[in-house]
Structure formats: C-alpha cells, structure tokens
Amino acid sequence: MSAPLLAVRGLTLAYDRTDAVKGIDFDVHKGGVVTLIGANGAGKTTTLRAVSGLLKPRAGSIRFAGREIAGMAAHRIARLGVVQSPEGRQVFANMTIAENLAMGAYLESDRVAVAKRRDTVLARFPRLGERLSQSAGLLSGGEQQMLAMGRALMADPKLLLLDEPSMGLAPLFVEEIFNIVADLKREGRTILLVEQNARAALEIADYAYVIESGRITLRGPAREIAENSEVATAYLGM
C-alpha cells in the first residue's frame, strides 16, 4: 500500500491544561473517506483543529503528503491543500453567499479557475446559486451547512476535513448532506469525516476509527466497525 496522504502519530492535545487527546494514531489514504466517530467531547473536533493548525499539539506528529505540519501556522496548512468545513458551519454571517464562496477560493488567484470551481459548487448546491447576493446569516441551518461545504470545496482541497456536517440538521437535510459526501467520494475526493451520526458515517466511509475520551479504542474497515457489537450498542443505538 502506498504511503498515506495524512499520517498522524502519537498526537497529544491539551485543552485548558488537561489532555483532551492522548496519543492517537490514524491514517488517511488518497481518494479514501476515513471517519472518526465518537461521543460528544471525545476529542474529535480538537483533533481536526490540530490537523488544520488552529491548535498546537503538545506532542506527536502530523504528516501531510510526507511533510510535517504539526504546529505549522493554519494559513500555511490551508495553502498545502488541507481545508476544513468547521463544526457548527461558521459561515461568515455578515457576508453574502457569493462572498463566502469567494473566501473559500482566497488562495487561488486565477480568476478563470475560481469561476470554474464556483460553477461546479453551484451545480452541486443549486439552492446557493439562487441567492448569491443574500446574507449568509439569513440561510437555514441546512443551507448554511451546504455553504460551509461549498466554501471549503472552492479551495479545491487535496484533503477535505468535515467536522460534524450533519449536526443539528433536520433529517431531510442530513440525508442530503450525506448524499453529497457520497458524491464527493465517488469523484475521488479524500475526506476525513468527523461525525456523531455514526450510522451514516460508517455507511459512506472506507475506514473508521472510534475515539473515546481522547483515545482510539477501535479501528478497522467501516463495514466491520458497523458490525461490531460494542459499536452497535454504544453508537448505533441497537
């Protein structure tokens, strides 16, 4: 097997002086979807913040495309092609939808490439295209999630980090969001998906890690994890 695109080793992260993540290892291979599932507060979001450079690791290594990125400034990590759609969507509420999308392509100076990406994103999320000049703050939760994902896709990421894309959404939107993730997978995007909705995440992912209180307690192909009886009782409500 080829070297992973993202390789995390012994990653330890402190949050308010206590260790929130305690020496975890995981890999994401090019073209694959890997999911990190676990309960609220298990350390999933903290892990993604470290991969994106918003949080300096206390120890451990994060290698992206063979390069050490642990502790690197967030904007430089984005430049390498690691782009996150953050938890709780966090769209720029005072900006228009068009401006939010433009922010996603902040690092691309080629206008033609930006216009092309925008067409692709708007084809994927037609609701956004109808309301380009509207304030993002006026969108519904599901639409904001689409905008947050569209914004990240505007960067044409080599590795897309999705933090809880289904959180707080109506069931119809949850289905739509996961359909889009599935589409992105089919198109060959490399995705690290963090989710509380373990069932949906395991259906899409190739490989899964279960994280509990800052430790990885289980790992394996997503199908096997879904059939694991402990996971079934703890996360799938069976």
Partner: peptide, 24 residues
C-alpha cells in the same frame, strides 16, 4: 477587493479566516 474580503472575514471569525488561508 480580496484583501477587504479577508479583513471582513477576520472581523467575523479569525479561526475560519485562517482555515481559508488568510495570514491573520
């Protein structure tokens, strides 16, 4: 301008501005 966009992004949410590649 793009710079103005980055300034407004920083005003709203400096973490996300960084995630989009803005050198805060």
């Amino acid at each position: 301008t793009k710079l103005g966009l980055a300034i407004r992004a920083l005003a709203e949410n400096d973490d996300v501005a960084q995630l989009m590649g803005v050198n805060v």
